[in-house]
């Protein structure tokens, strides 16, 4: 696999010329001296740089503290819980993770989550690409109506479909199966995915939509040979969003699956909370197991993630 081309951020921030470090204080009114970040940027006074970093540090602390605390707590013994809320464990105890993984069934939940997430992401990407291309390339009888019906899927919460879904799955004999989780999540994902890919095909290289017709390729060949090589970044971002939504999905997996052997991580953790509410360190280990994959994906694909969520939001 070739790495996706790096797309630059909206604004780049070259290194400061002067360096913000040593601002010599002048007496009297607030200094107007400052630092210029980037050639065209206005001069930022030193006090604003300091205030800016102060705010950013506070923000980072507030956002990270609850998460990091729970990760560290997973390595503590019960006795160490009382040693204060910033204390690190004296020795790091991986036992909680072993207990959660084996006796807490988190190993099974983890496997189940992977079994559900992988097909949802892959199939949704393929179906979204096909449908997005279809809407971008053609206007056809019923296209407006079908598009509006799909539009509804962007807004409907799972609460609005869960009751009938339970009885459909029961009738189909699919309760307590992976299918019960995979099929509805593909249905939800393709609604957003179709919009996303349609927007990509319309804005990326509109003239290419026509180009392939010239050399006699059929539309599917045109999509695969001409458009798809360009769609890497769009597909990657979409895939990351699908992964997050599916990995974190809770209500569907809570209702449609009651058998522990099919449970996914979030629901497994949800029930674990009920059973082990007093066992904080074990609970923390479980929460760590659920959160680490998403955090790794988030950090690796940080740009795609933020652009996807913020950009997707703005396209609305």
């Amino acid at each position: 696999m070739t790495p996706p081309p790096r797309v630059e951020e909206g604004t780049s921030t070259p290194e400061p010329r002067g360096g913000p470090g040593v601002a010599r204080r002048r007496r009297g009114p607030v200094s107007t001296a400052g630092v210029r970040f980037g050639a065209d940027a206005p001069v930022t006074p030193y006090w604003r740089v300091a205030a800016g970093y102060g705010v950013l540090l506070l923000m980072a602390f507030v956002s990270l503290y609850p998460v990091v605390t729970i990760w560290i707590t997973g390595f503590k013994t019960d006795a160490e819980l009382l040693m204060g809320f910033f204390a690190l464990p004296e020795t790091w105890h991986p036992e909680n993770f072993v207990t959660a993984w084996n006796t807490g069934h988190f190993g099974t939940f983890f496997a189940n989550s992977v079994i559900v997430v992988v097909p949802v992401v892959l199939v949704s990407l393929v179906l979204s690409t096909l449908a997005g291309f279809g809407f971008a390339r053609w206007r056809f009888r019923g296209s407006t109506l079908i598009f509006f019906v799909l539009l509804l899927g962007l807004m409907v919460p799972f609460e609005g479909v869960i009751i009938p879904l339970y009885y459909y799955m029961k009738a189909l004999g699919l309760l307590n199966s992976y299918w019960a989780l995979i099929l509805p999540q593909i249905g939800m994902s393709v609604a957003f995915g179709t919009f996303w890919m349609r927007a990509f095909f319309l804005t990326a290289e509109p003239e290419l939509l026509d180009a392939a017709a010239v050399d006699g390729a059929n539309p599917l060949q045109a999509l695969v040979r001409v458009m798809l090589p360009l769609a890497g970044p769009a597909l990657l971002t979409l895939g990351v969003l699908f992964f997050t939504w599916t990995w974190n999905e809770f209500l569907l997996a809570l209702v449609l699956v009651s058998d522990t052997s099919v449970r996914t991580l979030p629901v497994g953790l949800g029930f674990f909370v009920g059973q082990h509410s007093a066992d904080v360190t074990l609970l923390a280990a479980g929460a760590t197991i659920v959160s680490v994959p998403i955090v790794i994906v988030f950090i690796v694909f940080q740009r795609n993630f933020i652009r996807g969520m913020v950009g997707g939001a703005l396209k609305g």
Partner: peptide, 11 residues
């Protein structure tokens, strides 16, 4: 700052 937004709400 974005981290909380991507975590499972159960976590």
């Amino acid at each position: 700052a974005f981290l909380p937004y991507v975590l499972s709400l159960v976590v």
